[in-house]
Simulated scan of single mutants.
Amino acid sequence: MKVFKHTSSEPGLWRGWLRNGQRVEISTKKYGWDFGGGVHIHSNDADMGDRMLFLDFWRLTVILPLGIVEHPWPAMDGPQWSAYASKEFGLTFHWGMHRKSFDWPWMLHTLRYEKQMPDGSWADVFDWDAEPYTEQYPYTYTLKYGKVQKVTATVSKRRHVLCRRAFKRLGWPRWNKESIEVEFSGEVGERSGSWKGGCISCDYDLKPGETMLECLRRMESERTFG
């Protein structure tokens, strides 16, 4: 007797569907880490609830079916009873429809996010009346099949003033992380002209002592847009 109605696989992911429509899933990821587990209820196409056991260990996730239950909750908003420790999201607990999370004390916290003004001073990014200093340069992007896209890049400078979350009330020790904000005059990338659309804006981290133009040219040689 076959256990699975059908299965599918792709790099980093394997799924097998049972005859009742539930699935077994095994997946891996390349970055970050998670530990923990719990029971989740997700809505299905029959307006019922798929009860599943989630297990996370480092970069491996295993999902096991635990049967189908009555599901009066909205889609994608079902209850869970779980505890997870994650590099990205800290420590998170769920009980029913309730959730509580705690950031790791070493995680970064943004004290201020600012844009550079024409006189070299800094203003809050969300101060819409403050126009940042900008520079414009030609920018080229070569698609995989050889076509060269030519656009104009309008570049401005941003900075995050950062500290560790454990010290955010003190605001110290702190340091700055600078980047360029880039707006293109047209779409660039492999998806240009499709319904998904190409890239029209992005940011890129500045290296110490690097000018905006130097950073833009480095991005031009290093970065790809899917």
Results as ranks from 00 to 15, higher is better:
Y133T: 00
L18M: 11
T142N: 09
G198A: 06
Q22A: 04
F35R: 07
D50N: 15
Q22D: 07
R159V: 02
W58V: 09
D47T: 09
K144N: 04
G171S: 11
D127C: 07
D127F: 10
V69R: 05
R217W: 08
G186C: 09
D45M: 05
P79F: 01
W14L: 10
Y31A: 12
A75M: 08
W17K: 12
T28S: 05
R51K: 14
C202Y: 04
L55V: 15
R218S: 09
F167A: 08
Q116V: 00
S101F: 02
S185V: 10
S201H: 15
G96H: 04
E181S: 12
P138M: 01
W175H: 11
F102P: 01
E220C: 06
G226W: 07
L216D: 10
G209M: 02
Y113T: 01
D34C: 05
K147R: 11
R164Y: 11
I68Q: 02
G38N: 06
S27Y: 02
M52L: 14
D203I: 03
E187C: 09
R159S: 05
R112S: 03
H42S: 04
F89A: 04
Y141D: 00
L143R: 15
L108V: 00
T142M: 11
S185E: 05
F93K: 05
T92K: 14
G12Q: 06
G171H: 13
A130S: 10
G38F: 06
Y137S: 08
F35L: 12
D124S: 09
L170G: 09
F57W: 13
E220H: 07
D103R: 15
P208T: 09
G16L: 04
P11M: 04
P72K: 07
E181K: 14
Y204A: 04
R191G: 02
G146P: 15
C199T: 15
M117Y: 03
S8F: 08
R191L: 08
E70C: 00
F102Y: 13
W106P: 00
C215N: 02
P65H: 02
L64P: 06
V188E: 04
G171T: 13
G12I: 09
W17P: 03
S9H: 14
G146C: 12
R158M: 13
W195V: 02
S82M: 00
W172Y: 14
K207I: 00
N44A: 03
S179M: 12
R158Y: 14
R19E: 10
S121M: 04
Q22V: 10
W106E: 01
C215E: 01
Y137K: 11
C215M: 01
A46F: 07
R191W: 11
W195I: 01
G146Q: 14
P72T: 05
H40G: 04
M48A: 09
M76D: 07
Q149D: 12
R23I: 10
P79S: 01
T224L: 04
D77L: 12
F167C: 08
R23H: 12
H40S: 11
A85Q: 06
S221H: 13
Q22Y: 05
G197Y: 09
T224I: 08
A83Q: 06
D119Q: 09
R51V: 02
L13F: 13
E220G: 07
W172C: 11
S9K: 15
D45F: 10
E183S: 11
H94G: 01
P105L: 00
